[in-house]
Design a protein around this nucleic acid. Structure first.
Lengths: 254, 254
DNA sequence: GTCATATCTTGACCTGTGTCAGAAAAAGCC
DNA sequence: GGCTTTTTCTGACACAGGTCAAGATATGAC
């Protein structure tokens, strides 16, 4: 009885966090009934903020949770045979980090904060259990994983077939879309990652990223001030990415 | 009652197909109790063979099933803005095709047979339902999707960071591993895809693939006879891929 | 079998991007 | 504030791999 009581208390202090969270429309609770959101709330732990450079988890550590980003940005990466870091993704608010750990029971990548970042920890076994009780949650989980698969495959197309200009343009439009989805400006935003990290992610040298960005600015496609980016000429940028079939997809990567 | 009867008949003709299937230890039924395998059997439809070049499904079509490959090979690809095909994966027996369709309700890629191929169709809504009743099946499904995510991310590393030699070596060792897993020779096998398709997948020109393969043969790393490949010098090939951290991963892509 | 078509190989050449080097700007730090 | 360290930018140059071309080999149709 005391356990139930404790749970109720826990629930009452943190209850409706998901409901009140400005990200709830984008995050896991999407399409959940209020009571179901409460159930989800009960298994979620809000962790204290990570400072820039802090690890959320490290490659090889035991997997037990996925994390929803509340604020800030994370990168995931692994270390190649020659000891260099290979970035496999950037994660913005409302996005889920750590899904690749489910299979092997250890995280196959490390996750590190690019700036001050807060996350919600979601113990995966609890989430799986809960997904038995709430079909729409289970469906949502499948969808999120499926989405990740098709996004990563778009990324493979980008890495395999695109030149430096197309890569950088895709990257910027992709970020733009993610900001837009969260209600921020689609045209002006701040890059939380360095040029080096962008290059690493896109399979380009830092120098190439820098040159492409400079050239985009010269051609008045974008306006740049350090990490602040403003996309000035959307049509032209979209044309660069390829306006047809795959463009919509690419632009929607998240 | 007649419906139940029909189901029983269906079950009795096809029953234990999964149990008898030589792939069951690799495919979805992994770790399922006999009775659960029977339940799974009932929702699975064995389709008639695809001939080389036949589509299993096309990009944009309504998603309703995932498919387990029983024999043969498939490729998935999408069409880029400039109308060229970009291959996103090859699928061997026991592997699951179509998972990327769950999110958007349409397949984001097309799937085409590279040779005569048979598949089991698994209607996804049924599979999802069944996964509610069988926790180990649900867990297995999450694992399969998670595995796909981490494999694709390894592929991103390969596309972004590796040179032509490393790409081709990774590709061959990857195939070798997949054959081995199914009980076939890890050292000698037949490529069901053309050099062009390999190049497309790896982000290389056909000519480059051809040159690399020829050079590998000259250096006695492999022996080649058209589509027949024999890996002669495993240690050297593994060294090419990068023996450290990520190598094990890469070699395990599937 | 013969012919037609697709795939594969090889050579010669070209180009986009990586590498190296150094200067300029920004970010941390005491 | 000034100092150090990191990040960004720019230029000069090199080379991996793309492109073009042409011949060789394999595959398929009839």
């Amino acid at each position: 009885m005391s356990a139930t009581h404790a749970q109720t208390r826990f629930n009452s202090t943190l209850t409706s966090q998901c409901q009140n969270c400005s990200l709830s429309a984008l995050c896991l609770p999407i399409a959940l009934a209020d009571e179901d959101i409460n159930k989800l709330d009960q298994i979620i732990e809000r962790k204290k903020p990570l400072k820039k450079g802090d690890f959320l988890f490290r490659q090889g550590e035991k997997f037990d949770s996925v994390y929803a980003v509340r604020s800030g940005t994370l990168k995931t990466f692994n270390i190649t045979s020659v000891g260099e870091e290979q970035i496999t993704g950037f994660y913005c608010p409302s996005e889920l980090v750590g899904l690749s750990g489910v299979d092997s029971d250890t995280y196959p990548v490390s996750a590190k904060a690019l700036e001050t970042t807060t996350v919600c920890e979601i113990p995966f076994t609890h989430l799986e259990e809960l997904s038995t009780q709430i079909p729409s949650l289970r469906h949502q989980l499948f969808k999120v994983m499926s989405r990740k698969i098709s996004d990563d495959q778009q990324m493979m197309v980008l890495l395999g077939k695109k030149n430096a200009d197309e890569k950088v343009a895709s990257f910027l439009l992709n970020l733009s879309n993610r900001f837009k989805k969260r209600g921020y400006s689609a045209s002006a935003f701040r890059l939380s990652m360095s040029r080096g990290e962008i290059g690493n992610y896109l399979g380009l040298a830092v120098e190439t990223v820098s040159r492409v960005i400079t050239r985009f600015q010269k051609n008045e496609l974008i306006h740049v001030d350090g990490k602040e980016i403003e996309i000035v000429n959307f049509p032209e940028m979209q044309k660069l990415v390829g306006i047809a079939s795959d463009c919509g997809k690419i632009a929607n990567i998240r």
